[in-house]
Design a protein around this nucleic acid. Sequence first.
DNA 1: CAGCATCCGATCTGATACTG
DNA 2: CAGTATCAGATCGGATGCTG
Lengths: 118, 118
Amino acid sequence: MKLRNEYTCPLEMTHDIIRGKWKPIIIWELSKGKKSLSSLKNEIKGISQKMLLQHLQELSDYGVVSKNVYEGYPLKVEYYLTDRGRKIFEVVSIMQGIGIEIMVEDKREDFLKEKGLL
Amino acid sequence: MKLRNEYTCPLEMTHDIIRGKWKPIIIWELSKGKKSLSSLKNEIKGISQKMLLQHLQELSDYGVVSKNVYEGYPLKVEYYLTDRGRKIFEVVSIMQGIGIEIMVEDKREDFLKEKGLL
DNA sequence: CAGCATCCGATCTGATACTG
DNA sequence: CAGTATCAGATCGGATGCTG
């Protein structure tokens, strides 16, 4: 667990958890179900394996993500959101909703339709 | 306006807006009403003037914050949330709520009581 | 009071190569 | 397939001093 004690307010703590560049999108993907490293890597466009692993490790330190490891070859590992992770997902979900609102207001419906979000 | 066009999904855009170290807390303070630079500086413990100004500038580029400037001496400037800023505040507000939940679950009620949040 | 410039260390991110 | 190590560049953040 990596959560600090010197937060000024609870807001800061949540912010600390999701601040990394790829963290919200990782949480978004994991909200759909358990995922292997490689499927996350394929689904998150542009992410490097290093950053993916590093962020998964940090999220795990925060108690947001956990994993099941199955021994044998090929290795199989499943990452998933913990209860706390599903709480954090509520924030991520609102971020998505507000992002859509702003894009609509910004006349970017074309983008949203392309993504199947409108 | 600083919002990019290459977002993969709306989530990324929202994340981009609030990622800076002090951005959520600045938005939180501004949600209470118009504020001068110096009152923000006093209310946000630990922030440097440089970061405060830089983040206000970025939030302004994103259309989240605006300001009124009154000529004369001493100079008077009021920062405030735009409509878009109030949308983003919804995210920040949820971040606070979830942060409180996590702290409760983490047995940090003492902290919350101290801050008058419980 | 509001705001700018500069210097510097810390942190973050990405590319690449390698291991079990 | 999952995970580690290293190196370099980019970005971020903080301290300080100066300006209108």
